[in-house]
């Protein structure tokens, strides 16, 4: 077993709300300097940046999960994690047509930039990514599992785009292994799910402000599920950086 400090909710410059400074190199450098062991890239409704960051993260010795932050019809944010790039891309391809055709307007929403490892711009995502898929929350959870991924509701206790605010309570029959929280403590209704914390970083300096310390064998979704159940000494612990008051 290893103690793996993980920050599994990080946006890149592809997310319109993410700063251009969130280049693959900047993300990996910030994670290494914060002594983080594993990261996941979770841009809104898109995976166009995961492979470039994965390549740099893996060569820097970090664990890496391929991810996405989906926005369901009810404006709920749902994280999806995969061990491999191909499955993650298959899910992204499957939902792209469910994203409205509204074009991004960089003046109002920010740019949606795709860059390579050297920070050269290689493309722009034309559709506005911070928008709701034509897909209900329960269906989205099932779809992530169907594609072999791990669904984790994002910032469930946040006012904006959080599960509790948007849907009032956890829908009956929808079960999670892990759920992300801002405080480290899950609201009622999550059953046996373990609480997870992550930075939801949109700027490099935010990386690592909230992390989850997994005691498990490696950074993979199967190990995360085992850790959420506390199997064979595995565990999940939330860590929130203390804020400097001055």
């Amino acid at each position: 077993m290893e103690l793996i400090v993980a920050d599994l909710h990080i946006h890149t410059c592809l997310s319109p709300c993410g700063e251009l400074a969130m280049s693959p190199r900047a993300i990996v450098e910030a994670a290494v300097s914060k002594r983080i062991d594993a990261i996941a890239i979770t841009d809104h409704n898109s995976v166009s940046m995961v492979d470039t960051v994965a390549q740099l993260a893996l060569s820097a010795g970090l664990g890496f999960l391929y991810g996405m932050e989906m926005q369901t019809r009810e404006d709920v944010h749902l994280l999806a994690y995969f061990n491999d790039s191909a499955s993650c891309h298959r899910l992204a391809d499957a939902i792209y047509s469910l994203l409205p055709n509204r074009p991004n307007e960089p003046l109002y929403f920010g740019d949606q930039v795709i860059v390579d490892a050297d920070e050269t711009i290689i493309g722009y995502e034309p559709k506005l990514l911070v928008n709701s898929l034509d897909l209900g929350f329960n269906e989205a959870v099932a779809l992530v599992r169907e594609y072999g991924g791990l669904p984790v509701p994002a910032h469930v206790d946040r006012e904006a785009y959080g599960l509790m605010a948007q849907l009032g309570f956890v829908p009956e029959g929808v079960i999670f292994d892990l759920a992300e929280t801002l405080t480290g403590v899950l609201p009622e209704g999550f059953g046996h799910a373990a609480a997870m914390c992550s930075s939801d970083a949109h700027q490099p300096e935010q990386i690592g402000r909230r992390t989850t310390i997994f005691k498990m064998k490696n950074a993979s979704i199967h190990e995360m599920i085992l850790a959420s159940q506390g199997i064979d000494g595995r565990s999940v612990t939330c860590h929130i950086e203390e804020r400097r008051t001055k």
Partner: peptide, 10 residues
């Protein structure tokens, strides 16, 4: 505009 099953319980 919501039509998720949770509207019934609400």
């Amino acid at each position: 505009i919501q039509h998720h099953a949770n509207i019934v319980a609400v």
